[in-house]
C-alpha cells in the first residue's frame, strides 16, 4: 500500500527558515534526509520524494478566460507550508506512521528535533474488487 507523507513546516517561528540556520545545523539536517532516503530505498519502500523550494515564491494559479493562467500570492500570512513529501510503498499502515515519526525527528537549529507534523495519506492505488 502506498502512502504520501507530507512534511508541514510551521511558518514564521524561525524553525524551518533554513537560510538562517548555521551551516553545521543545515549540514546535519541534509545528512539526516539523505540517510532517510537511502534507508527507504534500501528497504525497498521508496517510490519518490521531493523537497520543495521555500514558500516565498509560491503562487496559486487558476485558469482565467481562455485558460490563461491567473496567479495569486505569495501568501506570507499562511500558518504552515508544505516543505517536502515522500511516497512510500509499505506492507502495513503502521510502517508508514513509523517512517513519518522518523521524518518528524529531523534535526533543526542546535540539533534539536524539529518535531514537525507529518500528514500521512493513503494513495488511491488499491485494486478494485470484481463482482
Amino acid at each position: 500500500m502506498r502512502y504520501m507523507l507530507m512534511m508541514h513546516a510551521p511558518r514564521g517561528t524561525g524553525d524551518y527558515q533554513v537560510s538562517e540556520w548555521s551551516p553545521a545545523d543545515l549540514k546535519a539536517h541534509i545528512e539526516f534526509m539523505h540517510r532517510l532516503n537511502n534507508d527507504l530505498t534500501q528497504a525497498g519502500e521508496m517510490v519518490s520524494g521531493e523537497g520543495l523550494a521555500g514558500p516565498g515564491e509560491a503562487r496559486l494559479v487558476r485558469a482565467g478566460r481562455n485558460g490563461v493562467p491567473i496567479t495569486d500570492g505569495p501568501f506570507p500570512e499562511a500558518k504552515e507550508f508544505l516543505a517536502g513529501f515522500w511516497i512510500v510503498d509499505v506492507e502495513r499502515p503502521e510502517r508508514a506512521y513509523e517512517i513519518a515519526a522518523r521524518i518528524s525527528t529531523a534535526p533543526g537549529p542546535g540539533g534539536t528535533p524539529l518535531n514537525m507534523p507529518i500528514e500521512v495519506r493513503q494513495v488511491m492505488s488499491a485494486p478494485p474488487t470484481d463482482g
Binding site: 530505498t41 534500501q42 528497504a43 525497498g44 519502500e45 521508496m46 517510490v47 519518490s48 510503498d89 492505488s125
Partner: peptide, 15 residues
C-alpha cells in the same frame, strides 16, 4: 509493473 523505481525494486529483491 509495480510502479516503483528500479533501485527500490532491486533492493526488495536483494532483501
Amino acid at each position: 509493473a509495480f510502479l516503483v523505481p528500479e533501485a527500490t525494486m532491486a533492493q526488495r529483491i536483494s532483501r
